[in-house]
Amino acid sequence: MKKDIILCGVGGDGIVSVAKIISDAALNRNLYLKQSEIHGMSQRGGSVFSHLRISDKPIYADVIPEGQADIILSSEPMEALRYLPFLAADGCIITNSEPFVNIKNYPDMEKVMAELNKVKNTVAFNANDMAKKVNARSNMVLLGATVPFLGIDLAELEASIQRIFGRKGEAVVNSNLAAIRAGYEFAKK
């Protein structure tokens, strides 16, 4: 089993923190894991990314080589496209379809969607709307939508959510669980 995942979005949107949940589930299964991220100046409203590598064999590099990522998980549609050089030929994109516009020259959305749809395995949907319905964060919905491609079961991720958010109380755990399930149900179709 090997999954190389690029998590990406815009600095401050919290997408990189999703890696923590996948990592917890992977470690719990005794898989090897490396997760690389960038701190500092680039965090301030710019493009951000994290490389998450999970495998049942030892992993060498902390970053995913080009053309080898199995999944791009993005909180923002244009950001998903930025990391296409990393995506394997049979890789998939899970992305929020809602743009985050903090730059003046944000491209035409139709063109962005057209590029995304060129990738065979793209799941793009409005994660903000779906998250609102269950009163949770869009990142958790996106994580849910990744589950069918992840090689880690929904139940394992649910257990990780319990472990990570447990001390924040039942309400937080439940809203996150609802979000991840909503995303999962959507992507399964």
Binding site: G46, Q68, L87, A88, V119
Partner: peptide, 15 residues
């Protein structure tokens, strides 16, 4: 292995 190029539509998002 090589991935796809970054589509031209993608613009920079500096910090």
């Amino acid at each position: 292995a090589k991935g796809m190029p970054v589509p031209e539509v993608v613009t920079n998002r500096p910090p």
